[in-house]
């Protein structure tokens, strides 16, 4: 049992959980969160792929890719949340 095996399966599981949430969650906020879980799962896969048995140093390229992925994901999350806020404001106005 090496760390890459353990965390690789963990990443796949997190991705799967996120997928269930993205397809099934009803609440808008929860769906955003589920998508974020998917992105963490994908990040796990790349980080695990970069891992080499110590003392060898890991491959830096996937690390850079995951950092890029994290920034991209926070941007997408911010836009989705802005849509949710705006929509909720409009719907609240309707009810009044």
């Amino acid at each position: 049992m090496t760390p890459d095996l353990i965390y690789g399966l963990c990443g796949v599981a997190v991705f799967g959980i996120g997928l269930v949430g993205a397809l099934c969650a009803q609440d808008r906020l929860r769906r955003v969160l589920a998508l974020k879980l998917c992105s963490v799962g994908a990040g796990f896969l790349l980080v695990v792929g970069a891992w080499r048995t110590p003392p060898a140093t890991p491959d830096p390229v996937p690390h850079a890719l995951v950092i890029t992925g994290i920034v991209v994901m926070v941007s997408a999350t911010a836009v989705a949340l802005a849509l949710i806020r705006r929509l909720q404001s409009l719907e609240a106005d309707d009810e009044r």
Partner: peptide, 30 residues
């Protein structure tokens, strides 16, 4: 309101599509 609702659905679909693609990229790297 209709455009925003549609836009939000589009956003969810877009992000999920991109993340599936990213997961695929991960497997290609592996």
């Amino acid at each position: 309101r209709d455009a925003l609702r549609a836009g939000l659905e589009y956003m969810y679909a877009s992000i999920l599509g991109a993340l599936l693609f990213l997961m695929g990229v991960g497997f290609v790297y592996l």
